[in-house]
C-alpha cells in the first residue's frame, strides 16, 4: 500500500505550497500537479492525503480535480499518449494517426495495454498546430509525426518501459 502514498518529496513540495500565495486556495491547482507528477493520475485517496498536507478541505481539491481535464482520475499506462484531433491536426491526418496507434498497440481508446505500458486518448488542441500531427506522451510533445516516427517512438518506449523501474512517469 505504500506505493499509493505520497512520497516524502511530494509532501515537502505540498508543504512549501501551503503558505506560498496570498490565499491558501491558490495552492490547490499546484497541489494537483504535485499529485499528478508522482502518480500519473489524480485519485481520491491521493487527494485526501494532499488535502491534509495543505490543510484545505478534501472537497475543494476534488471539485477542482473534476474540472480540469488534463489529470486522469484513474491509473493510465506508463506511457500516456494524448493525440490532438482538433482542426489543424485533423487536416493533416490526426484521425488516422489515432487509428494507427490503436491498431499497433491493439488497444481501445482510453484503455491500458495488458503490459501496463500504454494508454491512448484523444485530446483537444495542444498548441502545436504548426507541427501537426502531434501527440503528447506524459510530459513531452512529439511533433510532425509520420508512421515511421511513431514506430520508432513506440519501440523506444517499449524498450525503456520494460527495463526495471520503468520510465519516469
Amino acid at each position: 500500500m505504500n506505493t499509493m502514498s505520497l512520497s516524502k518529496e511530494s509532501i515537502e513540495k505540498l508543504q512549501e505550497l501551503k503558505d506560498k500565495f496570498p490565499d491558501r486556495r491558490t495552492a490547490i491547482l499546484p497541489a494537483l500537479h504535485v499529485v499528478y507528477d508522482q502518480f500519473g493520475y489524480v485519485g481520491d485517496e491521493q487527494l485526501k492525503e494532499a488535502a491534509e498536507v495543505v490543510e484545505l478541505p478534501y472537497v475543494e481539491l476534488a471539485e477542482n480535480a473534476s474540472f480540469y481535464t488534463m489529470f486522469p482520475k484513474k491509473p493510465v499506462g506508463k506511457y500516456f499518449i494524448q493525440v490532438c484531433t482538433n482542426l489543424s491536426c485533423a487536416l493533416l491526418g490526426a484521425d488516422s494517426l489515432v487509428d494507427y496507434l490503436l491498431e499497433k498497440l491493439n488497444v481501445k481508446l482510453g484503455e491500458i495495454t495488458p503490459d501496463g505500458l500504454f494508454t491512448v486518448v484523444t485530446v483537444e488542441c495542444l498548441g502545436s498546430c504548426g507541427s501537426a500531427p502531434m501527440m503528447q506522451v506524459n510530459d513531452e510533445y512529439h511533433e510532425n509525426l509520420t508512421r515511421e516516427r511513431v514506430d520508432e517512438l513506440l519501440e523506444e518506449f517499449r524498450r525503456e518501459g520494460t527495463k526495471k523501474g520503468g520510465p519516469p512517469s
Binding site: F21, P30, T69, M70
Partner: peptide, 10 residues
C-alpha cells in the same frame, strides 16, 4: 512573479 500551471481547461 509566481508561475502557475493550469489544468487543461480552455
Amino acid at each position: 512573479i509566481h508561475l502557475h500551471r493550469g489544468g487543461g481547461a480552455y
